[in-house]
């Protein structure tokens, strides 16, 4: 019960912040893919920057467990590209679209119907896909610092300022 209460509060906050950030708006999402509006990048990279610094310290204190997905190179790339095609056609991604419904965009119901179909089709094929595509280029659960053989600390000291510079650059576009 406590878990569901947390999910409720966190979900309310997530939808609230997505809406305030402007990324529940169709023209802002498509504007990002058209490379004429960079709001989506600004929101995502800010979240990544703040999130990764906080998570680093929480990991140091062993307050959080990692939830890292394995590298399945072929599935990541093909799935990622297919997702991108769908993202452009729908004009929303799964999270921003749910939030867009909350701001009155009933048009999101069309892509949501599609997502139910797509999810079930995947489930139908999941046994086969797990044994084929998902095994191609399987490198396990690996992080960028692990791949580069550097500590998380060293990586963040270099990467966090870089992300910050990108964010500053985006503000001048």
């Amino acid at each position: 019960m406590k878990k569901f209460f947390q999910a409720l509060i966190f979900g309310l906050s997530f939808g609230f912040l997505l809406q305030k950030g402007g990324v529940t708006k169709y023209h802002i999402l498509e504007g990002q893919l058209l490379l004429s509006d960079f709001t989506v990048m600004k929101v995502m990279l800010s979240a990544i920057l703040v999130g990764m610094i906080g998570l680093y310290f929480l990991q140091q204190k062993s307050l959080v467990k990692p939830h890292i997905k394995p590298v399945q190179l072929v599935a990541n790339i093909i799935g990622g590209l297919i997702f991108g095609v769908g993202f452009a056609l729908a004009g929303y991604c799964p999270g921003t679209g749910a939030a867009a419904l909350g701001q009155g965009n009933l048009n999101t119901l069309y892509y949501m119907g599609g997502m139910l179909v797509g999810s079930y089709v995947f489930a139908e094929l999941s046994e086969t896909l797990n044994q084929t595509v998902k095994t191609w280029g399987d490198f396990g659960k690996v992080t960028i610092p692990e791949y580069l053989h550097v500590s998380n600390k060293v990586f963040l000291i270099i990467f966090a300022p870089l992300l910050f510079l990108v964010l500053i650059g985006l503000s001048r576009l």
């Binding site: 997905k69 394995p70 399945q72 599935a75 990541n76 093909i78 799935g79 990622g80 590209l81 297919i82 997702f83 991108g84 095609v85 769908g86 993202f87 452009a88 056609l89 729908a90 004009g91 991604c93 799964p94 069309y110 892509y111 949501m112 119907g113 599609g114 997502m115 139910l116 179909v117 797509g118 999810s119 089709v121 995947f122 489930a123 999941s126 896909l129 595509v133 998902k134």
Partner: peptide, 13 residues
């Protein structure tokens, strides 16, 4: 778009 997005997301993880 929704069909592709859901299928792609499940495949990509």
């Amino acid at each position: 778009g929704g069909i592709l997005m859901a299928f792609g997301a499940r495949l990509a993880g």
